[in-house]
Amino acid sequence: MAAGRDLDSYGAPGWLQAAPFALVFAAFFVLPLVFVVIVSFWDYNDYQMLPTFTTRSYVESFDGCLTDLPNLCTMFKTYVSTAKFCFIVWALTLVIGFTVAYFLAFYVRSATAQMTLFLVCTIPFWTSNVIRMISWIPLLGRNGLVNQLLVGAHVVDAPVEWLLYSPFSVALAFVHLFTFFMVAPIFNSMMRIDRRLMEAAYDAGASGWQMLTNVIIPLCKPGLAIGSIFVVTIVMGDFITFDEMGGEQIASAGKVIETRLGALQFPPAAANAVILLGATMLIIAVLNRIVDIRKEL
């Protein structure tokens, strides 16, 4: 409402300026989303969708969720597993991303060096994420380099199995793939911090730790929040990383959709997409509660 009133006060030019993006947004985001929601309430058989209203896809997706309690149904198990990875990956990328950004923003003095190092961070993105993921396999496998090294150095007697096709390898690949999504917004926030604030804190006798917790982190909040949204939404919807690194043995919300699509069952796939969207929006709403991004920007 508030936004609408703001726009009204600018009159027709305001609406005109907003129109192109609003149209693109409506055509390529809102409309398809509406279709997905509609289809999720359709019926289906082996080979086609039947446009009659039914809640079948939702009912069957949540099958056993109440009756099986206290055991978790497939849906809850899948989401618990996905959320667990979300949290682990979020925590790790946050710490690593913050550290890298801190180094770039405060330790590297010259702007040229800063930009160069920042661009170096993007080099992994020159190849596809599938290739970046698969390159871990010869390293972590049963007869991979790491195991050869460990066995050769007599650290372990038999190859370590949990290095690949395990929760460990999935989390590792996610952190490898997505830390940069944390680095970029946090670095951006840090660069906007007025250096005089830090000098003032120093003059007022703040220790390095106090400066970090009382000045830098509060002022980096938007970057932290935006980075978190990137990472959380990507991990929530991912299925390729789960498949490749988890040996297709680890459930994820995206994987359920993929299996349904593969079996030509579009309505349940759509229903699961709507559920996933709901879950992701819930997480983002909570994040927004903690950090009001619009206000901070």
Partner: peptide, 9 residues
């Protein structure tokens, strides 16, 4: 297919 998803999970 639903049961298979359960197996994966």
């Amino acid at each position: 297919v639903r049961k298979w998803n359960e197996f994966i999970a």
